[in-house]
Amino acid sequence: MTAMETAAPAKKGLGERVGTFTNRHASVLPTFAAIAILILLLVGAELYFGNFLTPRNMSALLLDNAYLMILAVGMTFVIVTAGIDLSVGSVMAFTGIFGASLLSSGVPAVITIPVMLVSGALIGLLIGVLVQHFNVQPFIASLAGLFLGRGLAFVVSLSSIRVEDPVVLWLQSTRIRIGDWYITPTGILALLAVAVGAVVMHKTRFGRTVYAVGGSEQSARLMGLKVPRTKVMVYVISGLCGGLAGLVLTAYSGAGYPRNGIGTELDVIAIVVIGGTLLTGGRGYVLGSMIGVFVYGTIKTIISFMGAEQSWTHIIVGLLLLLFIVVQRAIVARSERGS
């Protein structure tokens, strides 16, 4: 057998080398499929509407979905460990309204912003401790986090609070232009979150342990990896991302609102899965989740272009999601059979 393995690479022809590539990177396939379908969507929309692929439109895609992108980064960490975090939407709402109320009572932004991030991380810590140390299933622990965040948001304020702080508003109002393209600091924050997330996932021991835990928690533990710490940390990261998303959304809408992000947790989970991450853990990419956000954003933009009414919006989002997952599934299934 050794002999066979040894001899094999030398004898490999071109066809087999292609096989080696797909072998090595089988887990990237769903993400590639997502990219391909994203391109199709964009091209299709352009052909249909004629004015879809404009720099303005594409810039807005990032701007409008910056908070989703940040949440998706945190969610990717959690899902890769085979966990789930339902609290992200309400954590975002809580930190957003909390920040807005601090600002409106005169606390400077340099203090408010760290407080927002830390309070998000603390809810994450609570969830992580429940999951790791008290053996609570992630779905339930984060469901408690969902109610907690939402409730705290209502406790802070029942109605929206306007933000007038110049620092926070600057995050949204500044437009860095390159020709017709533009980007705001919130967009930069989102891209930064993706970049940092991707580097942490792929280039640090912590990140690789996240994958290890998702592959097999038992094996990871027997291999001497620091499983408990990692599992708590991913929820803290997700909470931190919730806090950052709260900041970005508050800047984007110029106000904190306790009802923000209701149902967002499911959007984010869908986005992460569209980006090629498996809910069973061990496989997935932060960059894939970014693609997922673009797919999701594009679908929404298409709908707003069509000007559909509320009922149709739901249906079309559902149908496009369906189309997407079925095509993705077909692509993955076909190449699995092929290799």
Partner: peptide, 15 residues
């Protein structure tokens, strides 16, 4: 079973 989702190199050197 080690970790089927990671590369051989990582399985050897993880940690």
């Amino acid at each position: 079973d080690l970790l089927p989702n990671l590369s051989i190199a990582e399985n050897i050197l993880l940690g």
